[in-house]
Amino acid sequence: MISNEKLRSIVARARVLAGNITDPEIPVITLEDLGILRDVQAVPFGEKTNQGQQGFIIEITITPTYSGCPAMDQIRDDILHEMDAEHIPARVKTSLAPAWTTDWMSEAGRLKLREYGIAPPQHLSHEHSNSRVIQFATKSIAARAINTPANDPFSSQTASQNIICPHCGSDNTTETSHFASTACKALYKCLDCLEPFDYFKPY
């Protein structure tokens, strides 16, 4: 039988290991940074005898980002692989609620994203915009100021203002496309340094 103290240290170790695993698509940002690691705990496993609970398994709860994100399966495999390497019996549980939001991304994570060349997501409550994708805008749209919160599904906002270019730091940027290399990013262009960059969309 395993002591409570020992169990606590295994859980703590598993949490650090899982939290340090990096995202398969954006290898500079960890599961902890992303906010998708929701819980790590020891759950009883196997038979309970007069000697007490004989076995435990470490249950690691993650929450998916986008519904269709193909990285989720890879992340699950990476976690199990990491636990295997450390001989920690583990399983991964997926929990949909509460729904993941980019607001859970840590400040450290945002900084790493910017250094990697991806503009970090604005906080949902702060995401406002007055413009549409310039290339596609009709005259009537360009002339019209729209200012609605991003979490309103009918908000017409697309290109957010003040997305800072991760290359040169200018806020003179424009959205090229709502969708970029992955579903979670939009494609932007800096109008000062003219470099294209990805913007992690608020979700």
Partner: peptide
């Protein structure tokens, strides 16, 4: 569970709507 799935899908559909609305306007006008 339905509510949890809906919470995620709500976040995604707003981008879908934004995309198609832009093109409705761009191509219609």
């Amino acid at each position: 569970q339905v509510a949890a799935i809906a919470a995620k899908s709500s976040k995604e559909v707003r981008y879908h709507l934004r995309h198609s609305t832009d093109w409705m306007l761009r191509l219609g006008d």
